[in-house]
Amino acid sequence: MTAAAQSTNLTDPTGDDNVISLRDEGPQQVSERLLASAARLSRNAMTEIDWSEPMDPTKYGCSPEWSSLYGTDYWDELTEEQRIAVTRHEFASIMNIGIWFEMILQEMVIRDQYLGEYHSPEYQFALTEIADECRHSIMFAKASEKMVGTSYKPSKRVGRLGKLFKMTAKNEVAYGGILVAEEVLDVFQRGCMRDDRVLPFIRTVNEIHVLEESRHMRFAREEVRDSLAGVSWARRQFSAYYIAAGAYFIVSSLVQPQAYADAGLDVQRAVREARNNEHFHSMVRSSCAHLMEFLDEVGLLTRPAARIYRKVHML
């Protein structure tokens, strides 16, 4: 790792030290630190959020700037009420796609640790992560229920590809896929968690998830590094492409067309303008810079992989 990375610490969204060292210490030592952090800083949305509190009709579901339509002609034509509605449905879709991938994540981690060293910190943190993801999925489900009262799922084709990915991905592909998905969701949530224009309970959901996912992403990075030690050029090329392909289907599925329909918009126009929205593409690209640096550092940002990331504006 670079000297700069070695001297950096992650912090939680409230500014408190999250005691997660970024020094390259290996899976066991990193897991020990993450377990200590989880014991001290884990939160529970079921008790922390008042789910019965009425929603302020003037509050957005995400920062307007993070809407896939912000900056388009269509956005300029929408009333304030329509803008609020579309951000709520868009962010509900993003949370629901998060649930879908968190279920894939849990299955991959359980399979990876099936016959692991049960006494080891690595195994114990892996189970801690699974427990966190179960709570996150419930939190997202409750938030979606409260905000829009409906669910969004990937297309049937993407759903089938997700099943294939969770059955076949292992080692650096599994943890690389986990890292990419978590980083992408983290990008959206960091941009909205301190915005007073956003519904208070959504800001709390974002804050909890960002805090706890920082541990998961640190764990995934270390697992990727460990899995790639001494691998062949061919395996690295294949893994890089497979991870990027998974990222493509995750990112392209985040905002489902049905979310536009449920917000009362012209779906075909909304999809078309979102697809060509340079503002939104720029927001995603700049926020994924750290992820791309890591993938490049470990040899997973190959030319074929980079072409895929550019298609979904992560690079």
Rank of each mutant, 00 (worst) to 15 (best):
Y123Q: 01
K146A: 13
K146Y: 06
Y123A: 08
Y152L: 04
D132E: 15
T128K: 14
V148H: 11
K142Q: 14
Y118L: 06
D112H: 15
R135G: 03
E117K: 05
M147H: 03
K146D: 07
Q124C: 09
I130F: 10
G116Q: 04
T150G: 08
A126I: 00
F140C: 08
A141T: 12
S144G: 15
I138C: 05
I138N: 03
F125V: 02
M147R: 06
I130D: 02
H136A: 04
I138L: 15
I130E: 03
E145V: 05
H136E: 07
C134V: 15
M139P: 03
K142V: 05
A131V: 12
I138W: 02
Y114W: 13
F125Q: 01
K153P: 00
Y123T: 02
P121A: 12
S144N: 10
S151E: 12
L115K: 09
D112T: 12
V148L: 06
E129R: 10
C134N: 14
A141N: 12
Y114F: 14
Q113H: 02
E117W: 00
E129Y: 12
L127F: 14
H136L: 06
Q113D: 04
G149R: 11
K146R: 14
A141R: 12
S151P: 00
Y118A: 11
D112C: 06
P154L: 08
G116D: 06
A126H: 00
Y123P: 00
S144F: 00
S120E: 04
A131W: 05
H136F: 08
S144A: 15
K146L: 12
T128H: 09
A143Y: 01
H136K: 04
A143P: 01
A143R: 03
Y152V: 05
G116H: 04
I138D: 10
G149L: 08
L127E: 04
S137D: 11
G149Q: 08
C134A: 15
V148K: 03
E117Q: 08
Y123V: 02
V148E: 08
T128S: 15
K153H: 13
A126P: 00
A131D: 13
C134K: 06
A126R: 00
E117P: 00
G149K: 11
E122Y: 08
T150K: 12
M147K: 03
A131S: 14
I130R: 01
I138S: 08
H136C: 06
E117S: 08
S137R: 04
K142S: 09
E129C: 07
